[in-house]
Design a protein around this nucleic acid. Structure first.
Lengths: 239, 239
DNA sequence: CGCAGTTTTGATAAAGCTCAAGATCTGTGG
DNA sequence: CCACAGATCTTGAGCTTTATCAAAACTGCG
């Protein structure tokens, strides 16, 4: 290894090294694996609040949920947006360490924690949903740390389009504030970046409806979608 | 809730609301719960590389490991530092999505994935180690997004001191580059911030030995350590 | 129709990145 | 034990990105 004992000086990935990490998308979406009660939530309503006892795991049947926390100064972090099929609400301790709020009309399966582990299928899905959300966070951290506002928003839109399975046509359930608090940008910068995309013909917008137009954005999506579990085999098709 | 339908305008946490999220430290450290082969690693050596088959889970017996990935431009992200007792290496798919490297002389237990789930105790510990690392990342994201260089480094040092159980006296196994790539700072800024801390009498340093001196840093540590699982019960003692 | 909340746009300032150059440290071999 | 080389750390100067503050336009819902 020529990059120093501690490998710190790695300004550019050299060929022959491991390809850069990208989130490989799961090949299938989980069905409704959790058993439990169905509950409906109106836009803006709280699924669970910070510090409440954590008794349930949730799976989204329809709609969108955001999980958030506030830092010491009252600044908000959006930890994730949870779309149809996705599972959220696992906690390490007896109480919730975040709050979960419905962004639109939302239907959830509410599954008691005990029940979630009794079923082998569900337990397996629970484990892999946690790993997926970890990997999603890891990828987001990458963009938060090194990405420009431009890259962050492009990543966000393409990722969302993929997860919603909506080829290039997204109905955003979240505000510019939400997106900002998710990507580490101010809502103003998010708005300005939307405008910049629109100006350059990359997207068209109508309020919260977004259509991804140009390949400059779609191509990034292709790159995200291209890698399956065989990343070790294929040559890294970068740049 | 008066902060708008989508709860976006929350400039400051008002009293009566949920206290800001902080990572509650686990009340006990895991023992050596994983069974498997012990392996030793020299400083700078690779435990596993990106894209390699993921066959094992690891637990640190002694030493320190960092897990990293590179982004498309070759910039490095340090996802975590793994200290004595800590478990790492769980993957969602068949291959590793990060690389793991020993930072110093390090001894690990290498546990085959199959074996890890056979033992109920180990499976439980595996689950909670994954949740803990998720919570750790969530806290770090908070600092990456909203923290100044000052706050990031203070958080880093105090957290490390706590995890090493070394009251105010740390031997850093990682470089300034590593710290920067973990906190989203350039190594220069990390260095400058160390200097600023030293100048203000908050710490003293001798190469990679750090001693936390002033309460301005220790107090933040106390705050981190103060909250157990009863966060819902006690009044928030903030500021 | 009006209001609260959201989005957009503009102007300004500051934090931290980048580039650059020394200084210091660590391990190695003579 | 010393000298050397590679790596790491420190410090400086300038610049860019984006946060912040401010205000106007828009939107949706009651």
């Amino acid at each position: 290894m020529s990059a120093g004992l501690h490998g710190a000086v790695v300004p550019v990935a050299r060929s022959g090294e491991a390809p850069p990490a990208r989130l490989s998308r799961p090949d299938r979406r989980p069905g409704l694996v959790l058993n439990g009660t169905r509950r409906s939530f109106t836009p803006g309503s709280t699924v669970y609040a910070h510090s409440e006892p954590a008794e349930f795991i949730y799976q989204v049947v329809s709609g969108t949920v955001r999980t958030i926390t506030l830092n010491r100064e009252g600044r908000r972090i959006v930890h994730g947006f949870h779309l149809t099929g996705e599972i959220f609400g696992h906690e390490r301790e007896k109480h919730h360490h975040s709050s979960a709020e419905a962004l639109e009309r939302t239907c959830l399966i509410q599954c008691p924690k005990s029940l979630a582990n009794s079923n082998a299928d569900a337990a397996e899905e629970l484990w892999s949903s946690l790993l997926l959300s970890r990997d999603r966070t890891a990828e987001r951290v990458m963009y938060i740390i090194y990405g420009s506002a431009f890259e962050k928003l492009a990543y966000f839109l393409v990722d969302l389009a993929w997860r919603k399975d909506s080829s290039g046509r997204i109905d955003l359930p979240m505000s510019r504030y939400d997106i900002g608090d998710y990507l580490g940008l101010s809502s103003e910068t998010v708005s300005r970046t939307f405008t910049a995309f629109r100006t350059r013909g990359l997207i068209s917008t109508n309020a919260r409806q977004v259509r991804l137009l140009s390949d400059d954005i779609q191509r990034m999506g292709a790159r995200l979608r291209a890698d399956e579990d065989d990343a070790a085999v294929r040559p890294p098709t970068l740049t």
